[in-house]
Computed example of a mutant assay.
Amino acid sequence: MTNVVQFREPTPDASQVQTFAAEADRARLTGPAVKAVLRAVEAWEGSNAEGAALLGVSESTWDRMKAGRWEGVLSQDQLTRASALIGLFKGLHLLFADSMADRWPKLPNRGPVFDRLTPVQAMIAGGIPRMLETRLYVDALRGGL
């Protein structure tokens, strides 16, 4: 007779799940999130229009962010976009050990998520759901799921 021990993943406490709903959390996370998204879009050689669309801000706000003159707080949706983009950037750098990590978002893609668009185009057109799907797609490619 063999004893079987089952392992269960701990269920996260709802109070520990980051939803970006609390103003204090958004204020605390905005600076680092903006800095990371600016870096990712720059690495991807994205235009100001693309960066603004990906983050869900106007081009004039994007310009102020780039110049370090924006003192706002990102919304819940904007922080969700930032989280997806930051995760995608990290996932690409784990998947590719060369410059492909930064070229991939701007290359036409035949993957089922992209319909021959570039990932950047697909994420702009599809908003948050497509951004999250793109991040999951890259995580699955690298075996992270």
Rank of each mutant, 00 (worst) to 15 (best):
residue 92 L to K: 08
residue 100 M to C: 04
residue 47 S to M: 01
residue 118 T to C: 07
residue 23 E to N: 09
residue 50 E to F: 06
residue 128 I to P: 00
residue 38 L to D: 03
residue 28 R to C: 04
residue 104 W to G: 05
residue 137 Y to W: 05
residue 110 R to D: 05
residue 36 A to F: 06
residue 93 H to Q: 10
residue 49 A to K: 10
residue 70 W to M: 12
residue 145 L to E: 13
residue 7 F to A: 14
residue 70 W to C: 04
residue 110 R to S: 13
residue 107 L to N: 05
residue 127 G to F: 00
residue 132 L to G: 04
residue 65 M to K: 09
residue 13 D to R: 15
residue 4 V to W: 04
residue 25 D to R: 14
residue 141 L to G: 09
residue 89 F to C: 06
residue 26 R to Q: 11
residue 109 N to F: 09
residue 112 P to Y: 03
residue 49 A to S: 07
residue 137 Y to T: 12
residue 110 R to M: 08
residue 58 S to L: 00
residue 97 A to R: 05
residue 68 G to R: 02
residue 140 A to R: 12
residue 142 R to P: 02
residue 35 K to Q: 08
residue 105 P to M: 00
residue 106 K to C: 07
residue 81 R to I: 00
residue 22 A to T: 13
residue 52 A to L: 01
residue 118 T to D: 08
residue 127 G to S: 05
residue 122 A to F: 07
residue 77 D to F: 05
residue 107 L to H: 05
residue 18 Q to Y: 06
residue 121 Q to R: 14
residue 30 T to A: 01
residue 24 A to L: 10
residue 55 L to V: 00
residue 107 L to W: 08
residue 73 V to N: 00
residue 77 D to Q: 09
residue 115 D to Y: 09
residue 42 E to K: 15
residue 119 P to S: 09
residue 62 W to E: 09
residue 95 L to C: 04
residue 95 L to P: 02
residue 11 T to W: 03
residue 134 T to V: 01
residue 100 M to Q: 04
residue 128 I to W: 03
residue 69 R to T: 11
residue 57 V to R: 09
residue 7 F to I: 15
residue 140 A to H: 07
residue 84 A to P: 04
residue 24 A to I: 13
residue 38 L to H: 03
residue 17 V to N: 01
residue 48 N to T: 11
residue 1 M to E: 11
residue 40 A to I: 01
residue 125 A to W: 06
residue 102 D to G: 05
